[in-house]
Design a protein around this nucleic acid. Structure first.
Lengths: 199, 199
DNA sequence: TGGGTTTCATACCGTTCGGTTAGAAACTCA
DNA sequence: TGAGTTTCTAACCGAACGGTATGAAACCCA
């Protein structure tokens, strides 16, 4: 099995271009032509290498979660609950206002609402966000066990509030609100966390 | 000018149906067929009465702002800044989790991101949200002038935080998170406001 | 150099998109 | 009843959609 005609694109680079297109335009706002143009991949190759639009989107989501959401996992690994919150809020604001990426968050821009036939896209994105929320809740429960947070702290509610704020920042960033403006909002959210977890 | 064949639909009712479809599926996720089916209006009538899809969407947004966002104007009219915040947060959570309407907020579901040719839809929605934020900021500035809020309060940042939380609640509600869960998040946001405005 | 293999560019598939046209149907008024 | 008006149903428009087939081009290996 010799090696045929060489590809004119790098698979990983092409995938990253696809991430940006879906991020900027959402699932339904992105056409195959948008993708082939941005990725530098011709149509038949796109289908043979990445599968159809829905398959490609799944790979895009996975790539985004691994690379562009790494800051969230890093935040969860911080030693104290307050540091978890501080780092997540700070890095989230940075992540949704990067110069070389679309503003906002793919998990939201990708499709908060879709046509009837693409409801599964919106639902899978929603499920992944709620998965992140659960990770924070588990982290806060651990903090309660460790005495890092008071026993009357509501781990679920705190995690939910944290995700709510990050989603709001993503929506705001997508609307063009600059980073420093979001940082002030994040500072207020941080105060809320402190107020709710001080004995 | 006698009156020809009678319409089989009521214009206001049809518009309200259109609101729900756009609310649930977004601008780009909604087809003309989706609209004519839900509205009970045939295609030529839709075009003669409401204009094209973009014109209809503008009327939908206006109708939504007037009826489904009335709670925000009512909140701003409350006598004190804290009451403004409390009422807005509480009524917002209710508004995004109504049984007889889609979950979430049309201003976000309508299109946080669109294809290149429909960027104006996303931008006009974003602009209207930021307009609401400015109304809250003005209200907080008034409160500072009246001595209702401390002089070192940051009216812009507080308004932004408030809108961020409401947007996050809308995203969460669209994902199916129930009302009581959002109310706990809103309670935390309220604590943040108190912490930031206590002398 | 010539078979085997893979990707290339291009044309094509049926379907759906937003939007329009043609003519029948249902009303008011004289 | 019949002229005038409006909305109805239904067929139609070009363009774009997601996805596929075809055949030439570019590689490896013998």
């Amino acid at each position: 099995m010799p090696g045929g005609r060489p590809r004119t694109f790098d698979e990983d680079e092409a995938l990253e271009r696809a991430v940006e297109v879906f991020w900027r335009q959402g699932y339904e706002g992105t056409s195959i032509t948008d993708l082939t143009t941005a990725m530098g991949v011709n149509k038949p190759s796109l289908y043979s290498v990445f599968g159809g639009k829905a398959d490609l989107f799944r790979r895009v989501i996975a790539h985004y979660a691994e690379h562009d959401m790494a800051y969230a996992r890093a935040a969860i690994a911080e030693p104290t609950a307050l540091q978890v919150v501080q780092r997540f809020l700070r890095d989230n604001v940075v992540a949704v206002t990067l110069d070389d990426k679309p503003n906002g968050c793919l998990s939201i821009q990708g499709g908060v609402s879709c046509s009837a036939e693409n409801q599964d896209v919106a639902q899978s994105l929603a499920a992944s966000r709620l998965g992140g929320e659960k990770a924070f809740a588990d982290r806060f429960r651990l903090a309660i066990d460790q005495g890092d947070l008071p026993t009357n702290a509501d781990a679920d509610a705190l995690a939910r509030f944290l995700m709510v704020v990050s989603e709001g920042h993503a929506v705001h960033a997508a609307a063009g609100v600059p980073r420093d403006a979001l940082q002030k909002s994040a500072a207020i959210a941080e105060q809320a966390f402190k107020a709710m977890t001080t004995v």
